[in-house]
Amino acid sequence: MSDEYRSPESRKKPSWIWIVAGLGVLVLGIVIMTLAGAANAPAEDAVAQEDSIPYVETVRPRQAGLTFMVRAPGRIQPRERLDLVGEVSGKVTDVNPDLQAGGRIARGETILQIDDGNLRANVERAQAQLATAEARLNQAEAERDRQINLADIGASPEKAAEQAIAAYEDAEAGVRQARSQLVIARRDLQKTAIVSPFDAIVVSETVAPGRFVSPGQPLARLISAGEGEIQAGLPAKDVRAVRSALAARGDARLPVRAVPNSSSLGATDIDGYLAEFSPEIDQQSRTATVIAVFPDAFAPENEGDIFAGDYMDLLIEGRSEMPMWLVPDGAVRQDTFVWVVGTDEQIRRVDVETVDRDEDGVLIRAPKLSTGDRLMLTVLAEEIDGMRVHLQETQS
Results as ranks from 00 to 15, higher is better:
R75F: 06
P218F: 04
P323R: 13
Q190I: 02
A155T: 01
V293N: 10
E353M: 08
N302W: 03
L314Y: 07
A167L: 15
R187N: 14
D116Y: 07
T132C: 00
Y55G: 05
P42R: 04
F337K: 12
V338Q: 07
E383H: 08
D251L: 14
A267M: 04
Q190D: 14
S52V: 06
K12Q: 09
D51Y: 03
V290T: 03
N122H: 09
E321Q: 13
V95C: 02
R240Y: 15
E50T: 14
R319P: 10
D271H: 11
V213A: 03
I306W: 02
L84W: 01
A64S: 12
R365C: 05
G154Q: 08
L26F: 12
R388P: 02
D358C: 09
Q346K: 15
G233N: 11
N122Q: 11
F294T: 05
I105F: 14
Y55D: 05
T206F: 08
A267Q: 06
G103M: 00
T289C: 09
V341R: 05
Q113V: 09
E169S: 11
L265G: 12
A21K: 00
G250V: 10
G37Y: 09
I17H: 09
P300I: 05
V31N: 03
D296M: 07
S7W: 01
I230H: 00
E345T: 10
Q77Y: 01
A48F: 09
I201M: 02
A43G: 08
G90E: 00
L254R: 04
V242D: 05
L28G: 15
E229A: 10
E57I: 03
D344A: 09
A140G: 15
S10G: 00
P218W: 01
P323Y: 11
E109D: 15
P215Q: 05
S180K: 12
R257C: 03
I347Y: 12
I194T: 01
V95A: 04
T206K: 05
S156R: 13
G226H: 15
A292L: 08
V95T: 03
R144V: 11
D45T: 07
K12G: 01
R6G: 07
G210E: 02
P8N: 06
E57W: 05
R388H: 06
P255C: 06
Q190A: 13
L130Y: 00
R104H: 13
R187I: 10
V362F: 10
G228H: 04
F298W: 06
D51G: 07
R257A: 11
Q283C: 03
L84H: 00
E143C: 07
V327S: 08
R136S: 12
V202F: 00
T192N: 03
I19G: 05
W339I: 01
R107M: 15
T289I: 15
L26W: 08
I184E: 14
N261M: 04
L254H: 07
R249M: 10
A39H: 11
E393F: 09
E80V: 06
V175W: 05
E162A: 14
W16K: 11
F68N: 01
Q100G: 07
E345G: 12
N149S: 15
E80K: 03
A48N: 04
A164V: 08
K13F: 14
L315D: 14
D98S: 14
I194E: 00
P78Y: 04
G174M: 12
L274W: 02
S196G: 00
D351Y: 11
